[in-house]
Nucleic acid binder design. Structure first.
Lengths: 249, 249
DNA sequence: TTTAAACTTGCAAAAAACTGCAATTTGATT
DNA sequence: AATCAAATTGCAGTTTTTTGCAAGTTTAAA
């Protein structure tokens, strides 16, 4: 008997009776209790049922629906997103870049805030669609598999027709002297076009990225109007950024 | 025995019993287990079945779908998607519309098939990004909240620059006399632009939608090159569509 | 608190999967 | 028809996965 068959049977049994004992399953399926235990453990890890001492119960029986987000430094990004939201007014026209910080911004947008919102990022667009008072426009183009964003020539061309009030962008690396830098050339080109399409550009950036750099340069920091980190404004790590004529939140 | 023939037998066996052991197949087909294993691996990559340790299970049988989708008539849509996939060749340039049937098509695209793929639909784009050999281009524009698709003037304009080999579209309603109709005016305009951007248009349509109509007309059926339903070609429900000079799968 | 059942961990045997290679078949081209 | 390149297939050696068992620990119910 295939493992898949066995697990399928286990799921059926759990759905049918809402609860099962490992010993009963082992008996019914003609395998050792250890095997059943391992199966149930796997199914539990796949969120198909919930393992309990001595057996398993069905998902519907409890109120467990954990879609766990595994975002690095999520708490910091939430702080940043909230600060960014404080810049927004009703009927602003904004652009939201990709990356997990910008995604957090999209998630946390107040439902009563009226916005017109451009984006290049598939996940951000998904979130924006859930906001009843946000009109979402996706900037088309070739999609990058790892960043799930539109980028490249046709995206850059589409951006040339746009001028938004604020754009919120992330960056791979930022340094007070070298400015914003990236690992990837396409990303740099696209971010440049985003900045060009904005009256004001807001950089969202967790403190881990401060004072780091890589091979391709997006822009110098003086092109940025506002930089938002999770740090308090008087934090020492921000010292080097304070001479640069940019607003720091 | 030809490879093609053998793989066909394997598929039959899987569909019939929901599960098979590699050893049984090797025995039955008089080839080595390695050969069967390679066949099953290929079929798995083409999303015709799911390879598991020791054998294979049919698509509908899997417990490995963490979030069980609650799509109406999913099994029918899977049949339709498989038929649609049989039209595709390496290096085809295609466009995939929104809707759950088209989404299923995107999900089931073989991982080894090289495609350039345009789409207007956020969920479809998400799926396409998971295919290593598919280059995905999103047609930008204002996003509709309920259909999660780009539509409207800017989308239509972007489509005017494109001519794909095949477009796969869904429809709200279809009738042999009135053709494709929709509830929504914007949708109709966008679908017209999609059809214009295609050398050949393929309609994906579950049988429930046959012989139904609504207020806005996308096009007459003679504009469609191929219509795919889950029905067998000789099904009586398809009778009225057979005079229309369209290929029916 | 006691105690039997359930769990964890490590291990070993068997089954299955993967890898590289060589023999064979297939197909296209001259 | 001859020949070469590519695909297919089976085999042998190695690695991984699965499974049951045993020894020690934890859990939960009386």
């Amino acid at each position: 008997m295939l493992k898949e068959e066995r697990q399928h049977s286990i799921l059926n049994e759990v759905e049918l009776h809402n609860r099962v004992l490992l010993t009963d399953l082992a008996d019914k399926l003609n395998v050792s209790v250890d095997t059943v235990r391992r199966d149930v453990k796997e199914l539990d890890e796949e969120n198909m049922l919930i393992k309990v001492h001595g057996g398993a119960v069905s998902l519907g029986f409890t109120n467990h629906a954990p879609q766990r987000n595994n975002v690095y430094a999520l708490d910091k990004k939430i702080i940043i997103a909230k600060k960014a939201i404080s810049l927004l007014r009703n009927n602003s026209v904004i652009l939201i870049d990709g990356g997990t910080t910008c995604l957090e911004l999209a998630k946390l947008l107040p439902t009563n805030l009226k916005l017109t919102c451009f984006t290049l990022s598939l996940p951000v667009a998904m979130e924006l669609l859930r906001k009843p008072n946000v009109e979402t426009i996706f900037i088309g183009g070739a999609l990058s598999k790892d960043s799930q964003m539109a980028m490249g020539p046709s995206t850059i061309h589409a951006l040339s027709d746009i001028k938004v009030d604020y754009s919120f962008i992330g960056t791979g690396y930022v340094d007070p002297e070298f400015g914003l830098t990236e690992f990837d050339w396409d990303v740099v080109q696209t971010k440049k076009a985003v900045i060009n399409a904005s009256k004001k550009t807001v950089l969202l950036c967790i403190s881990e990225k401060l004072n780091s750099q890589h091979r391709f340069k997006t822009c110098h920091l003086n092109v940025i109007n506002t930089m938002i980190t999770e740090l308090e404004p008087w934090d020492a790590k921000l010292e080097a950024f304070k001479n640069l004529n940019i607003q720091i939140l």
